[in-house]
Design a protein around this nucleic acid. Structure first.
Lengths: 234, 234
DNA sequence: CTGTCGATTATTGTCGACAAATAAAATACA
DNA sequence: TGTATTTTATTTGTCGACAATAATCGACAG
């Protein structure tokens, strides 16, 4: 698994290595390619990327800043665990952000925003049709971020993006539990939300977003209460 | 300003240097000791703290991750500017967090939480009495964080803490504009909020928090629209 | 006098090596 | 045979030096 051919990229630009390592590790962690608890070895990464430990270290510091890896002083560093204990508090925050961003979108969107939103919705529907779990996660996030953008509050958008990223691992578990048979229902709910936004009905948009979010959260909670094996596996 | 006597701490423990530099720079930035735009020189800091550039660099990476410093590649790094353009979006987020945390506190607090909250309120009142602006910022944040803790949602508490930290520089400008003659009104509003929490009246707690937050925001906006010199000064 | 080009300089990004710290292994001892 | 202690090994944290890059300064042409 360590024999990825990187001999084809012998030349790197100064300063690009950190970002490359950071992005790659981040994706691998969030997509559960590196499951929680996986050891992160600096020397190994240094060899793999043909660079010194210094830039590797910088990437790891950034990942640690986002809470994606845990570093015990002078000892090993590993992929951080998914916090199942505080999961409900996370979901509360997620529901709130769903509501707020959708409500603001209904209030402040412009006509051109709707085109972007509908395009994202079409992509999500396509992912659902194709039964591609990873694409569903990505396009769903893109759709809701497009809605958030239409709300014209960059701060909320940033918070929301952060929140979605943090939950990506949980969503990954959720969607893969579906075995890629998937919820057409989400597509319909999205359609209703978009309609409410277009009608500038803030209250209805808020309500629909709440129902939509709580429904997803409820299903995820069902999954984790039904299937305790996941706790052991991680 | 660079001749702080650090000769008295010749011995540092392995790994403590990064945290020391990080904490110090963070405080200096947030308290406007290092105003926005101040250059950050690695070599200078290395000499000042009698350590290599490597740990300095790690501290800077973390600060950059929080957006407190801006790093242009291969060139200088400086204290980041306060984002006055998106300030209103920040305030919206702040108001929302004030409301949510206070509402949750009314719903979920335990009796022992109230003791902590009242202690923080007393400290805030003392800071107001003493006309100590920095202490007011700190104790006000501590009070609202205590309320957030009582809401029993660690995720919201974390978000709120982050938000308050990010706004610390703006609040610093605000409070110092008061010339330390200060709003007894805030103390009273806090009292009302605490009473609503104690009575477990979520709606009233939410309403009071909203009024409280919007009132502060309004005053800050007044300050910045009245006093455009601040834009130039930074 | 002004603008462009090139050399100098200053600062960052990266490297390889060493030192400190901890865990694991090996050894001594009861 | 089991436990305590020493030794070894592995990995992290730190250092000083070097390489790359952009700003600065100055020479020179217009």
């Amino acid at each position: 698994m360590t024999d990825t051919d990187n001999s084809s990229i012998p030349e790197r630009k100064r300063g690009s290595g950190v970002k490359m390592v950071y992005d790659l590790l981040r994706d691998e962690i969030l997509d559960l390619v590196l499951p929680p608890g996986s050891p992160i070895d600096e020397a190994q990464l240094a060899e793999r990327f043909k660079m010194s430990r210094t830039p590797i270290r910088e990437a790891l510091v950034r990942l640690a800043g986002e809470g994606l890896i845990d570093t015990l002083p002078n000892r090993s560093t590993m992929v951080s665990n998914i916090d199942f204990i505080n999961m409900n508090t996370y979901f509360d925050a997620l529901v709130l952000m769903y509501r707020v961003t959708t409500r603001l979108a209904a209030q402040h969107h412009r006509t051109e925003d709707l085109q972007v939103i509908r395009a994202r919705q079409a992509e999500f529907a396509a992912a659902v049709q194709a039964q591609d779990a990873l694409a569903m996660i990505a396009t769903n996030a893109a759709l809701h971020l497009a809605i958030a953008e239409a709300g014209r509050n960059s701060y909320f958008t940033g918070l929301f993006k952060r929140l979605l990223d943090e939950g990506r691992r949980i969503l990954r578990l959720y969607y893969q539990s579906y075995d890629d048979r998937l919820p057409q229902r989400f597509v319909d709910e999205h359609e209703d939300m978009i309609a409410a936004i277009a009608a500038r009905d803030a209250e209805e948009a808020d309500r629909l977003a709440r129902v939509h979010a709580e429904q997803i959260v409820h299903q995820i909670q069902m999954l984790f209460s039904r299937d305790r094996r996941l706790d052991i596996a991680l």
